[in-house]
Nucleic acid binder design. Structure first.
Length: 289
DNA sequence: AAAAAGAGCAACCGCCGCCGG
DNA sequence: GCCGGCGGCGGTTGCTCTTTT
């Protein structure tokens, strides 16, 4: 069970005594400066091991036990948006760690897909090197399609980064490159959901009468831009509506930069958008604005 | 009752980006 | 610009406990 690493550092399961030493060290010196923690705590462990033990086990208010239905629902939806960004997902689940979420996904969700009619791993969805679907036993299976997961990277602002600026490109009527009217317009003229339970409720009908959700529309808005490299316009009158206000709050300077009440986002901006957008704000019940 | 298989999860490992020298 | 240290992350391993045979 317990072992010693090459440098003489202990490995394996933590003892209660080690936990006590680490907990006391963090209480006295606070989190961070992990390279100093083993020395300060008198532990024969590496910095990473100490950090991991603290984050995944000793941190106060860590929630144990099964995930609630709401938590599972949130995980599934965030995973659809973010992919395996466990730390981001866990950040939206109070008391849960990235390791918890990851373990949950790797066990429960794998179990569910294994029992599905046509189990397949997400990573293989669009892999052309995989054998043809159903080739071995002539079973007709659904066409595999690429899962278009948006994977924003966290952005930090170092001393070298003087300011955060949105690389937005305003429409300039006299400039042929930007004067064309955007083809893809997001309609923000509808209500935000009011609770986590009904946040995908039908809250708007589109032009052909079919019901769509605000979240569906937002996802479509982003997907279209990425897949088709289309410029997208945001109608500024939408600021009168909750979702439009939310967009405005996320991008407070977009009105200043707009021309003719329209603004254009180029392809790369979608990634930036998701990087800075607090997705929890959209998905949780705290988006009253 | 014992062995094998499965499930759950803590911990390790390697990689990456950031930052300061 | 390069390099090394550090914090952080995701993938994976392997130990322990539970269930099945």
């Amino acid at each position: 069970m317990e072992s010693v690493a090459a440098g003489g550092l202990r490995k394996g399961a933590w003892t209660e005594q080690e936990d006590r030493l680490l907990r006391r060290c963090i209480e006295v010196y606070g989190e961070g400066r992990w390279h100093q923690v083993p020395v300060r705590a008198g532990l024969n462990r590496c910095r990473k091991s100490c950090r991991l033990r603290w984050l995944n086990y000793l941190t106060p208010n860590i929630k144990r036990g099964e995930f609630s239905d709401d938590e599972v629902d949130l995980i599934v939806r965030l995973h659809k948006l973010l992919g395996n960004r466990w730390s981001l997902i866990a950040g939206r689940l109070p008391g849960r760690t990235a390791n918890d979420v990851k373990n949950y996904w790797n066990t429960d969700q794998k179990k569910k897909t294994a029992t599905a009619p046509f189990p397949c791993k997400l990573a293989y969805l669009s892999d052309s090197r995989q054998p043809a679907a159903g080739a071995k036993n002539n079973i007709s299976r659904p066409q595999r399609t690429k899962a278009n997961i948006i994977k924003p990277r966290p952005r930090t602002f170092s001393s070298k980064t003087k300011s955060l600026s949105w690389p937005m490109k305003p429409i300039e009527p006299n400039n042929p490159a930007t004067s064309n009217k955007p083809k893809n317009i997001i309609n923000l003229h509808h209500k935000l959901p009011t609770s986590q339970q009904d946040d995908r409720r039908r809250c708007q009908e589109n032009h052909d009468g079919a019901e769509i959700t605000w979240m569906d529309q937002l996802e479509r808005f982003l997907d279209d831009g990425i897949n088709n490299n289309l410029p997208v316009a945001v109608d500024h009158e939408a600021d009168q509506f909750p979702l439009g206000q939310l967009m405005s709050s996320i991008m407070p300077d977009h009105q200043e930069k707009s021309v003719d009440n329209m603004m254009m986002f180029q392809e790369d901006n979608y990634q930036s958008f998701w990087s800075d957008l607090d997705i929890c704000h959209l998905l949780s019940d705290r988006h009253d604005i």
